[in-house]
Design a protein around this nucleic acid. Structure first.
Lengths: 148, 148
DNA sequence: AGGAAATATATCGTGTGCGATATAATTTAG
DNA sequence: CTAAATTATATCGCACACGATATATTTCCT
């Protein structure tokens, strides 16, 4: 017979290790990203731009699962650092066009070594990493289906 | 031959879905925890106390992988809400003793339904949940071995 | 015993994340 | 064809997380 409080024990939670691992990995990134003058969230934003060159805030929002209340101040910081431009979209003045500066483009080469450094800090087998990856995206997909 | 930028693509990152899933689940908790007047971090703190009744900040810190700069203000909020007491440890005046108030103890019964509600929001099979759980703790253990 | 090192907690400043709401531009419906 | 609904972004207030540092107490070493 289970104690009715069994579900409330910290060691029976799935969210807690998810949250802790996420915090842990971002802490591990910090010394690497400091060299690029980027925070973790700024780094994933730059990753999107290194693939796309130019994007609206709405598209960035759905790529990163973050909303304007997080992105707007973050983008302003990236402008201040000289990594991106922000312009109005000529065809829809509600919308903005985010694009890389030359400096932002250069930064990609300085960032090339970051993923490998991080992989060695996590220390999972390739098989475990793939399984983890798939399960995490499975959770994220439920999210998008439910229109969150 | 792989593009040297392959590792920099967002879809090749493991950290990004970890971070996004962690944010997502905490967002899902919010409406449930609002009813208890708790944030997610306050909730996991209360979980520790529901199991232990009394703990030092140092022990809490190592249970939650959070440091005093996060915990000190958070504990103050829980005091203001009437859920915990904070007293000096008589035997070591550097240290504090965190304990539940009667109201804090009652809250445990109001929280009993939260874990089941959350489990249904995540939507993994039991097998996937166990695998995910083990892999996450594997990552956290490396962390503690490395004395982070 | 007494000064130095270690330990426990607190404080500071920065940058997220979030729900709620505001504003401005565009689209839609009657 | 215009008023209402929708959309894209911005702003506000709150609560984390974090590294760095400060303070107070205890322990350790000689």
């Amino acid at each position: 017979m289970e104690n009715k409080y069994e579900g409330l024990k910290l060691r029976n939670q799935l969210c807690f290790p998810l949250y802790s691992v996420s915090n842990l990995i971002i802490r591990r990134y910090k010394p690497l990203l400091d060299k690029l003058n980027l925070t973790y969230t700024q780094y994933i934003t730059m990753m999107v731009l290194w693939e796309r060159e130019s994007i609206s805030e709405k598209e960035l929002s759905s790529a990163l699962f973050l909303k304007s209340n997080t992105l707007t101040p973050l983008l302003r910081k990236l402008v201040n650092k000289g990594y991106i431009h922000i312009d109005k979209n000529i065809y829809d003045e509600r919308s903005i066009v985010i694009s890389l500066t030359e400096r932002g483009r250069q930064l990609k080469d300085e960032a090339v070594c970051v993923p490998a450094s991080m992989a060695s800090a996590i220390n999972l087998s390739a098989e475990e990493a793939v399984y983890l990856y798939n399960i995490l995206y499975k959770i994220l997909e439920v999210k998008s289906r439910k229109k969150y």
